[in-house]
């Protein structure tokens, strides 16, 4: 009976994380369309609800009621399984995420390792979708996407190793605590690990297949990418997974390099005591929003990379730099 109650309680907590997250994803799509519109001197969606604020709801309803078309030659089971495999890891990763000092679903020792493992599993959804669709374009895109994710995962993993050396712990809460100090935002890891911060974020953009690394969806070459054959809710699930991953990368950047829930003004006289009253969750949310905005900004600003340049950047630039920084960080920690 006790075990049953425990499981029920955990389930309630999971719903309390996933529901707001799904809402965030829905409104992130609206934010993307609005932000890019204003950057391109347009208005963007403005018909559904006041200033277009109900647009994501309308989109969700539309996608839910659309027919799911199964291509005749598709591998039916895998075709349906692929979207689930892509959203599963994107949501499961939030289990170890610390929302504030003591608000975390699973406070495990190997949190960072768990995150790394789950982000590496996310690639299956894309590869299986590309293969099961039995379409040339989907398959080409799946191969592009898979190669890109595998390449950038290594740089990302090494960047996280540097963070773990600097913090001396695999627990995300401990990593945030390691950035606390009397200097406020100058204590955070983004200053001593500046190149790693940049590499981590750029790899994150590449890992989520976002512009300027969105060759997996090269409209001009391969129609729409690995989800050409998907329609209705199955397509929507891929979309949800992509945006949930973007929010995850933003939140992790905030945790790993921007002090998580710590106040940026801590330790500064007057300002520090004033802003220490703000709950930690608000700081984390603000930092995450800043990074999430960068994703949209990139998309409106940069032209798409050429594929060989993407590979060169990943293998020949990022990985060597991170290896050098692992050695450097180890040296500084040991001294």
């Amino acid at each position: 009976m006790d075990a049953f109650l425990d499981i029920l309680w955990i389930l309630i907590k999971i719903v309390a994380i996933v529901l707001p997250l799904m809402l965030c994803v829905a409104y992130y799509t609206l934010a993307e369309r609005k932000v890019i519109s204003y950057m391109q001197v347009r208005i963007g969606p403005n018909r559904v609800g006041p200033r277009g604020s109900l647009q994501p709801i309308a989109d969700a309803v539309k996608l839910m009621f659309k027919e799911i078309i199964l291509p005749t030659n598709a591998n039916k089971t895998l075709f349906i399984l692929a979207p689930m495999l892509s959203i599963g890891p994107a949501l499961a990763a939030w289990a170890v995420f610390p929302f504030s000092e003591d608000l975390v679903l699973a406070d495990i020792n190997a949190g960072l390792l768990y995150l790394l493992a789950l982000t590496s599993v996310g690639v299956y959804g894309v590869i299986i979708a590309g293969w099961a669709s039995n379409s040339k374009y989907a398959f080409l895109s799946a191969i592009r996407c898979g190669a890109q994710i595998v390449a950038y995962e290594i740089a990302m993993g090494f960047a996280l190793v540097v963070v773990l050396i600097a913090a001396g712990s695999l627990n995300l809460g401990d990593i945030v605590q390691a950035q606390a100090g009397s200097w406020g935002f100058l204590n955070w890891f983004w200053i001593p690990l500046l190149p790693i911060f940049v590499i981590y974020f750029v790899s994150g953009v590449a890992e989520t297949n976002r512009a300027p690394f969105d060759v997996a969806e090269g409209e001009s070459e391969i129609v729409a990418g690995f989800h050409v054959e998907y329609s209705g809710m199955t397509f929507a699930v891929f979309f949800l997974a992509e945006y949930a991953n973007m929010i995850l990368i933003s939140a992790l950047t905030a945790i790993m390099f921007m002090g998580g829930w710590l106040s940026p003004f801590h330790g500064i006289p007057l300002l520090g005591t004033l802003f220490d009253l703000v709950p930690g969750f608000i700081w984390l949310l603000l930092k995450t929003l800043v990074v999430a905005f960068l994703f949209l900004w990139f998309r409106a600003t940069f032209p798409r990379y050429r594929y060989d340049q993407i590979m060169r950047l990943g293998w020949k630039v990022f990985i060597p730099i991170t290896i050098v920084w692992i050695v450097l960080a180890g040296f500084f920690v040991a001294v």
Binding site: L116, A117, S120, V121, I127, G146
Partner: peptide, 15 residues
Amino acid sequence: AIVLVLVYVGAVMVL
């Protein structure tokens, strides 16, 4: 356990 997923599922099996 996690490294098994990370290395075998996340890298080796993808290739």
